[in-house]
Amino acid sequence: MAEHTEHHIVPIKVYIGVFLALMVFTALTVAVAKYDLEHIWGPLNIIVALTVAVIKATLVVLYFMHVRYSSKLTQVIVVAGIFWLIIMLAFTLADYAARSGWPTQLGQ
């Protein structure tokens, strides 16, 4: 069966550090959301917001959820989950984007 590394205990310092980073990123995402970046490039606001969210989620997954120290199998499961979610989002959105027109708008 899968070989076992000695169970890793994450030191408290790491938890506190990750926590502070999460708080900073939360402040950052609120602060940036106040500025209208859309006149620079249409989707810039949402891209920044999602990038920050992905960074925060990654921190939680890697440190709070110990994936950085977990077995290969756990890491594969995490990556597979994200991969499948992307399949669903990407293929469906690709269909909508490739149509001659986005579905009709309501009330316009």
Binding site: F91, A94, D95, Y96, A97, A98, R99, S100
Partner: peptide, 11 residues
């Protein structure tokens, strides 16, 4: 259905 023909091609 009203799926894009390009998506149809890939599928």
């Amino acid at each position: 259905s009203s799926q894009s023909m390009y998506a149809g091609l890939v599928f």
